[in-house]
Simulated scan of single mutants.
Amino acid sequence: MESIDIGKKIEKYRKEKEYSMRELSRITGITPSMLSQIERGLANPSIQTLKTLSKALNVPIFYFFLEENRTENLIVRHNERRNISVGDITYELLSPDLSGELETIIMTVPSNTLSSDSPIGHKGEEIAYVMEGKIVLYLEETKYILEVGDTVKIPPFMNHKWENNTDQAVKIIFSVTPAVF
């Protein structure tokens, strides 16, 4: 874990609000000299100071402690996707990693394959889109046939399973929140 520069975060939120150092000082009662030292990393703010700045900048205090996302870590090249196999079914992770609330995956279901013996549910809400092929989806006790271009929303904990009873593989792209893999 990289160290978090709270001063840079404070400076960022101050500039987003278009506050000068003097203006933020007037609002918070913190001297411009102390604000400058905090922003430059020369002084560590107390919890009370962070609460005061949080209120003045209208951001939750925990925002000062969030790690920055590096933009290069947000890209997933087509030939660098992580693959996960569960039985005969493969999953290609389109998301950069397994962190965060949203996860997007391509599921490949080989011909004559079931995702599970019986329908199962999970914590995440899911939206699925059939990219290639034709597949049977069981939602609770009801059977649906989905074809290319069809979508389905599967609420959290709804029992479901996929069945490919054709002679060709089926590809389905789906997003799940929160991430479950």
Results as ranks from 00 to 15, higher is better:
M1H: 09
M1K: 11
S3C: 10
G7E: 04
R14Y: 02
K17D: 01
Y19T: 05
M21G: 06
M21L: 15
R22E: 15
R26Q: 12
T28I: 06
G29M: 09
G29N: 13
S36H: 07
I38T: 02
N44Y: 08
T49Y: 08
L50I: 07
K51P: 04
T52A: 07
T52S: 09
L53Q: 01
L57P: 01
V59T: 05
F62S: 12
F62V: 09
Y63S: 08
F64E: 07
F65R: 03
E67T: 10
E67W: 09
E67Y: 11
N69S: 13
T71I: 15
E72T: 11
N73H: 02
I75P: 05
N79I: 03
G87H: 05
D88W: 00
I89S: 03
T90C: 03
L93Y: 01
L93G: 00
L93C: 02
L94M: 10
S95W: 09
L98A: 07
E101W: 10
L102A: 11
L102K: 08
T104K: 03
T104D: 02
I105T: 07
M107Y: 00
P110M: 03
N112L: 08
T113F: 07
S118F: 15
G121D: 08
K123S: 14
I127C: 09
V130T: 12
E132C: 13
E132M: 10
K134V: 12
I135D: 14
L146Y: 13
T151M: 14
T151H: 14
P155I: 00
F157R: 00
N159F: 09
N159S: 14
H160G: 06
W162N: 01
E163Q: 04
E163S: 03
T166C: 05
D167T: 04
Q168K: 14
A169P: 15
I173D: 02
T177S: 15
V180K: 07
F181L: 05
